[in-house]
Write a protein that binds this DNA or RNA. Structure first.
Lengths: 204, 204
DNA sequence: TAGATTGTTAATCGATTAACAATC
DNA sequence: TAGATTGTTAATCGATTAACAATC
């Protein structure tokens, strides 16, 4: 299958979670307009996304929820459990860890790093907390594919370079420091300051 | 001036911060290609954005940094200090508070709320920590314009409705629970799970 | 059948980029 | 002047939505 548009992948992630909630309510089938309503999208957009992943429903009953979830799984988690590390265990890093411990599907947080290991030793049983020096060796040993950068902004570039050097495949940058895209490494950035200033502007 | 595209507003936020850093390095002028390189954009995009805010540079020296920052200020912070509240002082809420205490330009965190006020009493001197019950009265009394939702997902909808009811103008939703857009209230959502799953997909 | 829905192409919309005149 | 840059229109690209045939 051709590589999917970023926006479609984002929506598939949301479809899957919404569908799982419906399944828990013992729903078996869902129409495109129902799924669309739950996510404030249009039914056409839902159907087009499903078309792109070559999934078909029935005219009478819509889409079979359990089956569709399985299909989305094969599309967006084709690789089993991808190992992830978090670098920087301040409040933000802790929030990320807290979010994904036990709750992830296609990936698993396998390690956390901080300049002061005292920042991460407590609170996350089963999640190793390591000094920065061990970053490269840990990544190589555990075949870590994805790194989450939650260090202070002035350390972001150095950490990023070390991740690249160690052979990481994807980076999530939560610092406001813009990083330089590198071939073969998927880079996703979220800048909280920008979001705040955007809301501030559109409050009008 | 016509309302700016969302993407342009986002970049203006980044231009401003990058320009401030250049100013600190005693740079006085900057060319569009220099600013573009710092943010991994194209020079045309920079110039087009500046065209949209009706700012002109010189052919010889590019843009006068200090002056451009001031101009961006008038565009994206035309309202003085906008009061903001954070609802939910777990790790994520703390990260947000930590980020913006003393560091914000167009807005100010004036209050934080949690079911357990013990979550927020320590750590942020000068930031009031209040029980949920006081939410509406605080918003009205302090003319709060913007609310940041960092509660657990199952409380998000209830808090959102209370914010709307209390007359909030902008909402930043950091829970994975999608909220329903309401006329006259700007809603910005960031879903961390989606970002993770997206990176996971594009690692390929 | 009539009505509701899916699946898909074509049109539209919005954002980015190419092209280039004007200027210093 | 020649070269570099800005400012702006037109073209392109990508994503969304409208339209509608096919199906149950």
């Amino acid at each position: 299958m051709k590589v999917l548009p970023e926006k479609t992948v984002e929506r598939l992630s949301k479809y899957r979670r919404t569908l799982s909630l419906e399944l828990e309510k013992d729903e078996k089938y869902i129409f495109s307009h129902e799924l669309a309503n739950l996510l404030h999208l249009t039914p056409v957009q839902v159907r087009r996304d499903l078309m792109l992943i070559e999934y078909s429903g029935s005219h009478k009953r819509g889409y079979e929820i359990h089956n569709l979830i399985d299909h989305i799984n094969t599309i967006i988690d084709p690789k089993g459990l991808v190992p992830v590390v978090i670098i920087g265990m301040g409040n933000f890093g802790k929030a990320v860890a807290h979010y994904f411990i036990e709750r992830s599907r296609g990936f698993k947080i396998v390690g956390s790093f901080d300049r002061k290991t005292s920042h991460c030793t407590e609170g996350f049983p089963g999640l190793p907390c390591l000094p920065m020096d061990d970053l490269e060796s840990f990544i190589k040993e555990h075949k870590v594919k994805m790194g989450v950068i939650t260090v202070p902004p002035n350390q972001a570039v150095a950490i990023y370079n070390r991740l690249i050097e160690a052979g990481i495949k994807g980076v999530l940058n939560y610092t406001p420091k813009p990083l330089t895209p590198v071939d073969g490494v998927f880079l996703e950035e979220y800048d909280m300051i920008t979001s705040f200033e955007k809301v501030n502007y559109f409050i009008g």
